[in-house]
Computed example of a mutant assay.
Amino acid sequence: MHSTTLHADNRAEVAAALAQDRLVVACLCAAWCGTCSSYRAAFEELAARHPDKYFLWVDIEDHADLVGDLDVENFPTLLIQRHETVAFFGTMLPDPNVASRLIDTIAATGEAELDRQAGSTAERRQWQQQCNLRQLMGTA
């Protein structure tokens, strides 16, 4: 496997990985969701295409204490973060090519531009306050 699945017994390991200097791509899903189950292979394919990034699979029901307040409207939902900046949070078509282009675009964007984008709308400012995985892992 190229991604990490969050479990109760690996939270410290995941928190340490999130603290590293690399782009984080997290898929927020649910075990009962058929779309999520079928997307899992595509997510692994994405992780294999981007070995320099950290891919994390999070079941939002198993880890409601961590992500319970996040507004996951549909599946799969991707959360992409660089350092403390949440660059993307939203539903993604279950197509690895679309996600790969998004990841490439964010990876090629400079820190200053990502920071500017993070504050550019009320929705993006809300992501910074509510969706930061580093902060959520630190408080869970």
Rank of each mutant, 00 (worst) to 15 (best):
D115T: 05
F88E: 03
D65H: 11
L56H: 10
L133N: 06
N97A: 15
R124E: 09
D71V: 12
H7A: 09
A8P: 13
A112P: 00
D104N: 12
A99I: 00
R40K: 15
L79P: 01
S37T: 11
L23T: 11
C36S: 13
T77H: 08
T105A: 13
A140T: 04
L70T: 05
F43I: 02
C27E: 15
A112Y: 00
P94S: 06
L18T: 09
E44A: 14
A19Y: 01
V14T: 00
A122Q: 13
G68K: 07
S100V: 01
E84Q: 13
H50L: 01
I80T: 03
D65K: 11
V67W: 09
E13I: 04
C29F: 04
A122E: 14
A107E: 15
T139F: 02
V25H: 04
S120E: 13
A112R: 07
L66P: 10
A41H: 13
V98W: 02
E73K: 15
R134K: 15
F89K: 11
F75T: 12
R125N: 01
H2F: 10
D95W: 00
Q20D: 10
D9W: 05
A19P: 08
A118N: 04
R125F: 02
E13D: 12
R82N: 12
V67C: 07
S120C: 02
L18H: 11
A42M: 10
S38H: 02
L6E: 01
T77D: 06
T109N: 01
T5G: 06
G138N: 15
E45W: 01
Q128V: 11
D104R: 10
L114D: 10
M137T: 02
N97G: 10
R101Y: 01
T109I: 02
V58W: 12
E73M: 12
R11K: 15
D9I: 00
Q126D: 15
T121I: 04
E44N: 14
M1D: 08
A42L: 14
N132I: 04
L46W: 03
L46R: 08
F75K: 11
E113I: 04
Q20N: 03
A118V: 02
R101L: 10
C29Q: 08
T91S: 09
L56S: 08
C33Q: 06
T91M: 03
A48G: 04
T77W: 09
C27W: 00
V14L: 05
W32H: 03
D115H: 05
L70R: 06
Q130F: 12
D71F: 11
F43H: 01
S3G: 00
T109C: 01
L66H: 03
P51R: 06
D71I: 09
Q128A: 13
E61G: 12
Y54V: 00
A107Q: 11
D69Y: 01
Q135S: 14
T105L: 07
W32T: 07
L28D: 06
A64F: 12
D21N: 13
N10V: 02
E61P: 07
Q81S: 12
A140W: 05
A47H: 05
L23H: 09
P96N: 04
